[in-house]
Simulated assay, not measured.
Amino acid sequence: MGFYDLSKDERAQLVQKIDSAILKGLKDGDSKTLLPYFEDSDTYIRKAAYLAIGKVYKAKKVAPLKIISVLKSLMESDSEKVRQTTVNAAGEIGKTDFPLVQTFFERELFDVHHSVRNAVIGSIKKMGEKNPQPVLGWAKTYLHHPNKEIRREICHGIELRGRTHPQDILPLLKELQHDPTARVRNTLIHVLGQIAYKKGCLKTVVNELNHWENKELVEKALDEIVDVHHRYKNFAVLSQEEVMVFIDQHYMKRPD
């Protein structure tokens, strides 16, 4: 029976059970206690497990280095689900203390399984939103990595911070405007669109794009910004028509 097949009260009881088991395992330094939850086939069981790690760390119930020791043991698992959950657990810690878990992300950026790499992207998002200075500083070092997938993952990972503080990530995104790989450039365009439809962000994004050199990419990004305001019209602050008017008034068209 899956997590959401349970009643609300049953889910609360299960989370409490997971929290207790995780706490005991961390106190004992025993990764085997955590393993059943970290490798569970149900996404929400695994989520409860990695959130439990964050609760223990935040409450200071177990020494941070002891938690890290258990997570390092779990990271050696052959199971991609275990590694994925471990990355997400590290991300919970990284929201307040990124240097403590930095090595997890340096390693798992290159994991053989896409679900683990996706967990890295998700963790960079949540860490970058809450703890931007060290996370974005670290991310910047990978913007010109030889591996195109690393560049793409970093581009995608810093997106969430940009939705509230676009000025923090736009200088990093600018470095990717001439990326030789279409997949990376397309991710960059996607991220610009995702930022621009959030409250207060459109002006900052358009003003920044006025200073980018890659005219072709900028125009594709502007098209994406207009389109995303239609796709997400129930969530966007401005209508698509208002956005088109704003771009016409504020984007400085340059000659070919």
Rank of each mutant, 00 (worst) to 15 (best):
T33C: 10
K72M: 12
K126D: 13
P64R: 09
I158L: 07
L202S: 02
K174A: 15
P134H: 10
V82Y: 02
E39F: 02
T103A: 14
M127F: 06
G94E: 01
I124W: 01
D19L: 00
I45K: 12
K233T: 10
V101P: 00
Q84Y: 04
K95Q: 15
K58D: 09
L209S: 06
G162F: 07
Q102R: 14
K81M: 04
L222H: 03
G157L: 05
A21W: 00
D19H: 14
D9C: 00
P171I: 09
N186F: 08
L71M: 13
G2N: 11
V56F: 11
K140I: 02
Y4Q: 04
P134C: 10
V116K: 06
G193M: 03
L34W: 07
G128Y: 04
I124T: 08
E39K: 12
E76T: 12
G2L: 13
K66F: 02
K215Q: 15
Y37E: 03
G137F: 07
Q16I: 00
Q167T: 11
I154M: 07
A221V: 03
E92F: 08
K32W: 03
G162C: 07
I67D: 08
I150K: 03
I18P: 04
W138V: 03
L23W: 07
S123F: 01
E208W: 00
H144K: 14
K60P: 03
I169N: 06
A139T: 08
A236M: 01
K203G: 02
I189G: 06
S123I: 01
R151S: 06
Q249P: 00
E153W: 05
V56G: 00
K253S: 09
H145E: 14
K60Y: 09
S41W: 06
S41Y: 09
T204C: 02
L170P: 04
K148T: 05
G128M: 09
V82I: 11
C201F: 04
K58Y: 13
Q194D: 12
F235N: 10
L222Q: 01
P36K: 07
I93Q: 03
I154H: 00
R163I: 04
Q102I: 12
W138Q: 09
A196G: 10
A48C: 05
A236N: 00
K126L: 07
T103V: 14
F38A: 15
D97S: 15
A196L: 03
L192M: 13
